[in-house]
Design a binder for these strands. Structure first.
Lengths: 257, 257
DNA sequence: TATTATTATGGTAGTTTTAACCAAAAGTCA
DNA sequence: TGACTTTTGGTTAAAACTACCATAATAATA
């Protein structure tokens, strides 16, 4: 049985490769998984959160891990990422993009168990969702929770590394792209926006007053005229992101630390 | 025979997945390839070049394509990228990093031929090598050539898209990271550096004089004291990149358009 | 109701950075 | 020698950034 499977890729290879000479070099047979690093920002408590699920099977039974799935027949990678996200949370607004592909040998303990050369490869995706409206879907079996980035538990596989990688991407995205507006409500105050930035980037990247004037000077935030009164203090103007006005600023930096 | 193979992933799945309910959804069986977008810069002729090889087999027999390979047993993804690069060119200095993973269904025509659900996934890598010292390795069978980015031929698979993606990455890398110094000689003139930037980014990103003073103010270029006289004109100072002095500038931008 | 606390807003002044030039220095080439 | 080329090191005006500050408009409170 191991022989049957391990000889199969060799025949394929003869048909498909050009620059190989040694028949004893076997091609790996892959299972491809998608793992999502799903971030959200709780601006009230000033916490950056990442979504974790508890594994219900070996390996790493009972440990927290990134929500993931193996890719199905005929399913695009991004479709698999969308599917696993939709299975775990209900959201209205989200941003999703590919992060990195982790595929070193022995990153999954199951590779050691099998005598033939099956490999597990993880294409990770990075997502940012609106926290206030995200509803976690508990399937009644496996645990699911938002964990603050500052208090991550021990994670299955190489998922800690994947999260660190995602955290870097999140910071860069926020600085260099209008990703914030994907997860803010249609109408938001400049203070909402500032809270989001400081929660992810830290307090030290800019003064609130300067943050305001820099963004307003760029002319892609439309004042809706409507005011929002939330507790004490002068009511704030509600703004709207104008994608058309932002267009010429594409691939320019927005904010710097 | 198709049945034997297509039923195999299903048994695996029952053992390995948690949140699936429908047995008719089959997991895909993957071949994982690595494709390299290898750039070099010919500063004399002011051309950005990408390395292409001619395919010697179906599909796309006789068409130009990115140099690639299928991943072997026990081989890390980056190791496969290194291997294919070393098979095609001899270089001393190079920069290599993962680019993107393309894995939509039907991106490879071979998927249609097989009645079982084999999928071809491409993990692409981005490389920048020093042009002047890069020696192409012709294996006597398949063609190999540097093509200017401005005159790319029709390419196999989705390789045109991969190259466009790589071109974006190259521009960003050059602006935001010291990748240029990986492919310049140890000693170089500021003019050499400027030629590299203008060839990739276009003439309009900065005046030579301003480019010089901005870089020198950052204090990570050491003047070696040695002068280089190349043809007419005042001899230029040869500089050296000081990685230690650059350290605090990591993840800050270097040059802006 | 008058006062205080809180948040939003709009500004100023000093410094730094950028952009667009310019002129001298130090070579080669004819 | 004189013309030409390339490097080098400026200058200057405009723009942007930083660290503040004053005021406006509301809620909470005495």
């Amino acid at each position: 049985m191991p022989n049957r499977l391990s000889s199969e890729p060799n025949r394929q290879r003869k048909m498909n490769r050009s620059d190989d000479c040694c028949d004893e070099l076997k091609l790996a047979d892959f299972r491809v998984g998608v793992d999502n690093v799903i971030f959200s920002v709780d601006t009230d408590l000033k916490r950056l959160l990442v979504l974790l699920v508890m594994r219900q099977e070996e390996p790493f039974l009972g440990q927290w891990s990134l929500p993931g799935t193996l890719v199905r027949n005929g399913e695009a990678l991004e479709a698999a990422a969308d599917r696993i996200l939709a299975e775990k949370i209900r959201v209205q607004n989200l941003y999703l993009e590919q992060l990195y592909t982790f595929g070193g040998p022995m990153r999954d303990p199951r590779e050691a168990e099998a005598s033939y050369g099956v490999r597990y490869l993880s294409v990770s995706y990075f997502a940012l969702v609106r926290y206030s409206e995200a509803e976690l879907i508990a399937d009644g079996v496996s645990g699911i929770a938002w964990y603050p980035m500052s208090q991550l538990p021990e994670l299955a596989f190489d998922h800690s590394k994947i999260i660190q990688y995602g955290h870097c991407r999140l910071r860069n995205k926020l600085e260099y792209s209008p990703v914030a507006f994907e997860v803010l409500p249609d109408l938001f105050t400049l203070s909402d926006l500032y809270q989001l930035y400081t929660t992810v980037l830290g307090e030290h990247f800019s003064d609130y007053s300067n943050f305001r004037s820099r963004l307003l000077k760029l002319k892609f935030l439309q004042d809706s005229g409507v005011k929002a009164s939330r507790g004490a203090g002068r009511p704030a103007s509600l703004y709207k992101f104008d994608a058309e006005a932002f267009e010429p600023l594409k691939d320019k930096a927005l904010v710097f630390i």
